[in-house]
Amino acid sequence: MGSLLDIIASTVFGGILLITVVNASDIAAENNSKFNGDEVVQEMLVSTARLLEGEFRNMGFGVRRESTAVLYADSSRISFLCARPNSMTTIDTIKYRLGPTSELLKTKNELDRYLYRRVNSSAELGVGVVTLFKLKYLNITGDSLATPVTSDKLSEIYVVELNLEVQNPAAISRQGALVNPGERTALYSSSLWQQTRLASQNYRR
């Protein structure tokens, strides 16, 4: 009888312990996944932001003052001229554009898309995966220029405002009861970067 009680008690306590530990493991795994996702998002954002910031600062380098450095300017697409630092006579055309969401259907995140970069006529390279890439153009008096900027107003671009958002391609599911109508059914780590006054010094010559 005593042994039976021991066994039953051990089983009960062992079971409780096991369930607790499994639960803790589950929570730890979930947090680990979230932290991992946050870290991935941060690194993606930092690398993309550094690339854009660095290139946009050099817009118009090597281009004659009388010429227009920006060839095309839209809210999610831009094309501009920039010379190479080791050869100012070679002027490259650099283009950035946002790809469609349909190109990344294999990820859980339905909003992510490639950010493409092209130099001259070479093949496009995906330089980042973002959910938001928005450009705003201001003239010398601080007024916003309507996009796409018409060809007669391209020379008025003085400052570019850049908004970038990166989200985790992988989702963390939400409990159904917590999802309100119209909201996404999963959670995605997200990070937003904004440069409100990215002005190339070559526009101030």
Binding site: I7, S10, T11, F13, G14, L17, L18, V21, V22, A24, S25, A28, A29, N31, N32, F35, N36, D38, E39
Partner: peptide, 27 residues
């Protein structure tokens, strides 16, 4: 059963320890 339970607990503790370490590293 007690020994088995103990082994299970120790095992999970080690695993959770590594996971905590990873989370701290990510942080």
């Amino acid at each position: 059963v007690g020994k088995a339970g103990l082994i299970v607990v120790v095992g999970f503790s080690i695993i959770l320890g590594f996971m905590s370490l990873n989370m701290a590293r990510l942080g």
